[in-house]
Design a protein around this nucleic acid. Structure first.
Lengths: 82, 82
DNA sequence: ATTAAATGTAGTGTATATACTACAAATACT
DNA sequence: AGTATTTGTAGTATATACACTACATTTAAT
């Protein structure tokens, strides 16, 4: 894969790690190739809605919890009460 | 464009019409080609997250309000109170 | 220290996302 | 009725989404 950068942000890695899933495991659950998941996590990839919906379903969160035009901020008290 | 069908749903047309926008206008606001918007509305297209985020921004709704794995149901009292 | 598991890098191949042009069909406006 | 606006259809061209293979590197477990 040639060098690429995407101009939006995602929380995929955080959501995956929080659920104690390896890429391989998440890949099997979603039928997405593990390398593809890796590219997304490294923000080198602009996935399609369909792929995103598969991730959303398995992770149990909405699309907007995974992808955002704005940068996700670190978790703090405000995050957890908001 | 060869015949294509996508296996998720979107509410783009409804959101656009509700805002009294033509495809051309929405196209200009988002920098998305009007034909591309047409393909999405006709569910013949699986757009990327980046495109989806541009739509989300100008329409003022989250990704999940536009795209869903499940079919969107018609608006009724329940919709409007929920 | 070895091994195993997880992740990163690189490259190939195919399908399709998206822009663009052009024209037809339908709707709305006078 | 005639014109303008909006939508649909069709076809071309380019970039990239995504799968897949293989190997290197890092991290975790014994």
């Amino acid at each position: 894969m040639t060098e690429r950068k995407v101009e939006f942000h995602n929380r995929l890695k955080m959501l995956r790690v929080e659920r104690n899933l390896s890429r391989k495991q998440l890949a099997e659950m979603t039928n997405i190739h593990p390398q593809t998941i890796g590219y997304i996590e490294r923000q080198q990839f602009n996935p399609t809605i369909e792929l995103a919906l598969r991730l959303s379903k398995v992770l149990g969160v909405g699309l907007d919890a995974i992808f955002s035009a704005e940068e996700f901020h670190l978790i703090d008290n405000k995050t957890l009460s908001g």
